[in-house]
C-alpha cells in the first residue's frame, strides 16, 4: 500500500499552550484511522492541521499529502482531501443540491456520475427528500448528514471527519459506517475523530489515543482485533491511556 498522508513532528500551539507536541502519523490508501481523546485533547486541531487549515512552517513539522508537500503548497495538498468539521460551514441560504453543484464545479467532477452517486448516498443517509430545501431549514442532524454526503461525493483520496457520529440516529450511524467501509474498499483513506468505542472497533484499521499533545496509545488492526466484541475492555484501555 502507498501512503496518502505522512506527518512528522506536527506541533501546534495556542499561545503558550501546546496542543500537538511533535506527532507522527502515516496513513495508507484505503486505511481508516480513528483518533480518540478527551474533550479538548486536540483532535479537532489535529484534523485542521492535516486539512492545511492551520498554518504550518518547517519548525512545526512536516506534512505530505498525496506526495505534495503541504507545508510549502497547502493549496495544492488540500485538493486531495476534504475535511468535514464538527460544525461544517454549509451556506444557510443554499440547498444541499446547490452545494453538490458547487462541489462538482470546484472539484471538476463528472456531473452525471455525481448525480447517480448522490441518489445512492442520500438514500443511505435518508436525506433524499431534503436536497431541495435551504440548509437553514434543516435540523442540525440533517445538516450534518448533508456535510457527510458531500464528503462521500468529493472523490478525494483522503477524508477527514470530525465527530461524524455526533447527532446521528442509530440507523444513520449504521449507514454511515457502511458508507465509510465501501469508500475504504474503493481506496479512500479516512481519519476520524471520535469518542465511540464500539464504532471504532467496527471500522478502524488503527486507533490512536491523543493525550497531552502526544500519542498515548497506538493500536493496529491486530491489536484492535483482540478487543472485538468487548467494547468495555477497549474503553478501559483507552481511559487508562488518557490517564
Amino acid at each position: 500500500m502507498t501512503a496518502i498522508l505522512q506527518a512528522k513532528g506536527l506541533t501546534q500551539q495556542y499561545g503558550t499552550h501546546t496542543v500537538l507536541d511533535g506527532l507522527d502519523l502515516t496513513l495508507d490508501r484505503g486505511q481508516i484511522v480513528v483518533v480518540l481523546g478527551e474533550n479538548g485533547a486536540g483532535k479537532s486541531t489535529l484534523l485542521r492541521t492535516l486539512a492545511c487549515e492551520l498554518p504550518l512552517d518547517a519548525r512545526a513539522g512536516q506534512l505530505e499529502i498525496a506526495d505534495v508537500n503541504a507545508v510549502q503548497n497547502p493549496e495544492q495538498a488540500a485538493e486531495h482531501l476534504i475535511h468535514v468539521a464538527q460544525h461544517p460551514p454549509l451556506a444557510p441560504a443554499l440547498t444541499p443540491q446547490e452545494h453538490i453543484d458547487a462541489l462538482v464545479a470546484f472539484r471538476r467532477l463528472n456531473a452525471a456520475e455525481t448525480q447517480t452517486r448522490t441518489a445512492q448516498v442520500a438514500q443511505a443517509l435518508r436525506i433524499e427528500g431534503v436536497l431541495g430545501r435551504p440548509v437553514r431549514a434543516l435540523s442540525g442532524g440533517t445538516a450534518h448528514k448533508v456535510a457527510l454526503m458531500l464528503a462521500f461525493l468529493s472523490q478525494t483520496p483522503l477524508v477527514l471527519l470530525d465527530e461524524p457520529h455526533a447527532g446521528l440516529d442509530v440507523r444513520s450511524a449504521l449507514a454511515l459506517r457502511r458508507l465509510i467501509q465501501q469508500s475504504r474498499d474503493a481506496g479512500t483513506a479516512f481519519v476520524l475523530a471520535s469518542h465511540l468505542a464500539e464504532a471504532t472497533l467496527a471500522i478502524a484499521d488503527r486507533a490512536l489515543v491523543l493525550s497531552k499533545g502526544k500519542w498515548a496509545l497506538d493500536l493496529d488492526a491486530t491489536a484492535l482485533a483482540a478487543f472485538q466484541g468487548d467494547a468495555r475492555r477497549f474503553e478501559a484501555a483507552v481511559l487508562q491511556a488518557m490517564g
Binding site: E75, E79, I82, A91, H99, F106
Partner: peptide
C-alpha cells in the same frame, strides 16, 4: 461570501 463553504467544497484561495 461563503469562503469557508467554498474552501470545504474545494475552491482554491486564488479562485
Amino acid at each position: 461570501p461563503h469562503a469557508a463553504t467554498r474552501r470545504m467544497l474545494g475552491e482554491t484561495a486564488t479562485q
